[in-house]
């Protein structure tokens, strides 16, 4: 019963994340949605042995720990890239409004 509950939650979280990745345009929202998807997969990995009579299985737990560190690495780089990208966008907006259309497409 408990596993069914958590399995439904994991599946719904995955689908929710995927939906948000598809329909949201903001980069931060997309990153968060991807992180929700990743969490859903981690949750599923842990559920595999949740009702195991022998006790929990350490292999998925280790995989999830590795997965969490990889997720935080990717997210950290993505967030840094996002900040610099937005700064460049702004700069372009400003020069664009000052110079008018003199530059044109290159």
């Amino acid at each position: 019963m408990t596993v069914m509950l958590y399995a439904t939650t994991a599946a719904t979280l995955f689908a929710l994340g995927l939906y948000a990745v598809l329909v949201r345009t903001g980069l931060i929202h997309r990153l968060l949605a991807a992180n929700v998807m990743a969490t859903a997969v981690f949750l599923f990995l842990i559920l595999v042995s949740a009702e195991n009579p022998e006790g929990v299985d350490a292999i998925p737990q280790a995989m999830v720990l590795t997965g969490i560190v990889i997720a935080v690495s990717l997210t950290a780089f993505a967030l840094a890239l996002l900040r610099y990208l937005q700064a460049a966008d702004d700069e372009e907006d400003q020069t664009g409004s000052q110079d008018g259309r003199q530059n044109g497409p290159d």
Binding site: L31, M37, V41, A78, L81, L85
Partner: peptide
């Protein structure tokens, strides 16, 4: 930078979907 951001988003979502497959195999 814009191209890299797009690449990163595709790769990020792709790797999570790949990991879902790995988890299903293990399960």
């Amino acid at each position: 930078m814009a191209a890299a951001m797009r690449y990163l988003l595709f790769a990020l979502v792709g790797s999570i979907i790949f990991l879902l497959g790995v988890a299903l195999v293990y399960a």
